[in-house]
Amino acid sequence: MKYFLQRIGFYVFTAWAAITLNFFIPRMVPGDPVQSLIAKYKGQLSTDAMQSLYILFGLDQHKSMWAEYVDYWKQIFHGDLGLSFTFFPAPVSQVISQALPWTLLLVGITTIISFLLGTSLGVVAGWRRGSWTDGLLPVTTFFSSVPYFWLGIIAIYLLAGPDSFFPSSGGFDSGLVPAWDQYFIPSAIQHSLLPALTILISSVSGWILSMRNMMVTVASEDYITVAHAKGLSERRVALSYAARNALLPNVSGFALSLGFIVGGTLLVEIVFSYPGLGFTLLQALGARDYPLMQGIFLIITIAVLVANLLADIAYLLLDPRTRKDG
């Protein structure tokens, strides 16, 4: 428990450091993006919005750095991340909350499926090592080393096209309005198939390989021989002894990969022009939209930290050795 509290303390500290860094970076950016923006939208900015920009970008000369810093934290806690330049005058929080579900659903679901599928296949491949399943390993190794986006480009080239069932870009038909109805949902699913398949194929191989290798390592442990000697069924030895122990590193790997759902598949979204967070980040980069970039980085940082925390919790639950005597 003490260990766990230490970890939580560490994550809180990291989050604080990341947010503080986010406060200082724009103050060091050369040039003056806010002034030019204010000039561009002369007259259209409300006083409130301008005040918020001043605080975020440190242009509020009447205040001390410390007072600005306090204001900055207040804004963060109210979910106010400033206004986006590219989607002006939409607030950053709104832009992010529109893009985030796309990424969460696409990458989240594929990550979970990929983990479950890859781990199960890895258990079988590891337990039956030396059989025909070993012949599939080179293929798996190939796919796990191919970058996502490259696979995505190939998939678009081979499968997408004007007459194809698979659309090559976007998250839904351009004629539709996002809504939970019978037109929009099938279209969204149809658009997600190719990117999902791309992510699935290149990530499932990694899970298969790591689980298989752990199974092979664990299979030579003494307690596996003992389990056989005890006359337990093959199934029980394979699942409750071998797979249960081999799972440990994979589960924490999975928890960590949840953190990369948000930012890790940026390139796939870019290749497929998928309206998720990665694609939005690309747009923000192109337009030097600092508030949006900051907001997205903040979300990515928090996601990674939460995932690390989940990995710790998973390990704590699965491996009794990490629980200090209780």
Binding site: V226, A229, P320
Partner: peptide, 11 residues
């Protein structure tokens, strides 16, 4: 077994 230290499954 020889090396019975590792004969028990740690989990």
């Amino acid at each position: 077994f020889q090396g019975a230290m590792n004969s028990l499954n740690p989990v």
